[in-house]
């Protein structure tokens, strides 16, 4: 399995940022079996990195590897949408359809 490279951009360690970090760590632990590198970037300390990546909203999670690159904005509290959005949903596929009624 390919190793995932994840970057999480936050603006200061606000409660929202802490929530996003906790959510992300939990998802990674449950779904990625330790096969990932996670970098947390504080935009207040590294505004130029945010400029280069054109980050507007925080928290923003960027999955750089495996390709394709995916971005997801929000506090990552909805695990299903995070996995879907990151294209990491293989393990979760049957669950993902659970709530769909239409």
């Amino acid at each position: 399995m390919n190793r995932s490279v994840l970057k999480l951009y936050v603006t200061g360690m606000t409660p929202r940022a802490e929530r996003a970090v906790a959510n992300l760590r939990r998802i990674c632990a449950e779904e990625l079996d330790g096969q990932y590198d996670l970098v947390i970037i504080d935009v207040l300390e590294n505004p130029q990195l945010a400029e280069d990546e054109k980050i507007l909203a925080t928290p923003t999670l960027i999955k750089e590897l495996p390709r394709p690159v995916r971005r997801i904005i929000g506090d990552l509290s909805d695990k299903e949408r995070v996995l879907l959005g990151l294209d990491l949903c293989r393990a979760l596929a049957p669950v993902a359809t659970k709530g769909e009624t239409s």
């Binding site: 929202r16 925080t58 997801i72 929000g74 949408r81 959005g85």
Partner: peptide
Amino acid sequence: VITPGYDLG
């Protein structure tokens, strides 16, 4: 993908 719980900080 935009999910709730963000700001434009």
